[in-house]
């Protein structure tokens, strides 16, 4: 009974508002076009984020979620996010967001570019942006990050901070962006200490923190005293290993991980995803969105070296000066960070 009462009351209100809306619409339009009057006149800006992993990973996906929240707060957008477990679910979610006329859909990973290209023609009013993607269409943009810019700077710090002359890198899986980042890291370290020895290991996935911890302990046993991790959620295991070893230092990736283990973290190579996402959302909002590849790096303020203030004492003024010099060269585009 109660349910029915509420329902009928809601019905009355909605018919009333519908009537008001139609009056408005008719008076504005004057001519007798068929009026779809259930929707408010102003269309709300709607933005969605699709990730392959949980937004609680304190890394890659968490950063994107932060960006989504920023878009909500500063552009007043309605937001939605979903985690896809399999490639099969990607098309489904893209289509659903397209059908609900979202203005912008972020696919956060390379897996999203083929589905975006496939789905986009059916939803010309929706812009799709895929991070790490390089394929484009009129309403599909790719977003790539010059992560190597930051990795090179991290290498300078690591090369200066290492006492043993052995530094480690631990990646999730051996994908080209990670391989490129480690090469840039090595080049940065060699610019300080040409004899530095680099150890590299891959966890095999992006989630297994205990496997990453084992890899880190193996590298520590071989003398590594600075480890750069780019392994997403698995990378948290590297911090644990360093905490146990005490004298070993870690460099974080993708988001500011300095607070994960402040006593052992020298700094983080941060991709300012929120900033990048805001840039694209603004473009969509201002109708200046183009289906091209957004290439964002240190010069755009999107890839940054963020030092951990708590361990600032461990980085010498000479190293800081070296960092500033390298940054200038990178921003001017004259330093060739190895690919």
């Amino acid at each position: 009974m109660i349910k029915r009462f509420k329902l009928s009351r809601w019905y009355h209100i909605s018919t009333l508002s519908t009537a008001i809306h139609s009056l408005f619409a008719i008076s504005i339009l004057a001519c007798g076009a068929p009026v779809e009057n259930r929707k408010p006149v102003t269309n709300q800006f709607k933005v969605a984020l699709v990730t392959t992993g949980p937004i609680s990973d304190q890394g890659w996906n968490a950063g994107a979620y932060k960006g989504l929240l920023m878009i909500r707060d500063s552009l007043g957008a309605r937001i939605s996010n979903v985690q896809t477990q399999t490639p099969a679910e990607i098309d489904e979610n893209f289509r659903q967001y397209g059908a609900q006329s979202y203005n912008l859909v972020f696919g956060h990973g390379f897996e999203y570019q083929d589905p975006a290209i496939r789905v986009a023609p059916s939803f010309p009013m929706t812009a799709f942006a895929t991070t790490s993607g390089t394929r484009t269409a009129p309403n599909v943009a790719g977003v790539t990050f010059a992560f190597s810019d930051g990795a090179y700077l991290a290498g300078i710090v690591a090369g200066a901070a290492s006492h043993s002359g052995v530094i480690g890198t631990i990646g999730g899986t051996q994908v080209p962006p990670v391989v490129a980042a480690f090469k840039a890291f090595e080049a940065g370290a060699r610019s300080v200490n040409p004899n530095v020895k680099l150890l590299t290991a891959y966890v095999g996935n992006w989630e297994d923190a205990s496997a990453a911890k084992e890899q880190a302990m193996a590298q520590i046993a071989r003398g590594a005293d600075v480890i750069f991790q780019d392994a997403d959620a698995a990378g948290l295991g590297v911090f644990q290993a360093a905490r146990q070893a005490k004298t070993v230092r870690v460099i974080g990736s993708n988001s500011d991980q300095n607070e994960v283990a402040p006593e052992v973290t020298l700094g983080s190579v941060v991709i300012d995803l929120p900033r990048a996402m805001m840039m694209i959302a603004r473009d969509v909002r201002n109708n200046t969105f183009k289906g091209h590849v957004y290439q964002l790096g240190d010069a755009d303020g999107v890839v940054l070296w963020v030092a951990n203030p708590k361990l600032a004492g461990e980085v010498s003024p000479a190293t800081v000066a070296r960092l500033d010099a390298a940054k200038k060269v990178i921003d001017a585009g004259t330093l060739k960070v190895p690919e």
Binding site: A48, P54, I55, S80, N81, V82, Q83, E89, E92, N93, Q96, Y97
Partner: peptide, 10 residues
């Protein structure tokens, strides 16, 4: 999937 998209259930 629908619950995630529309009401933000993780």
């Amino acid at each position: 999937g629908t619950m995630q998209r529309n009401i933000g259930v993780p």
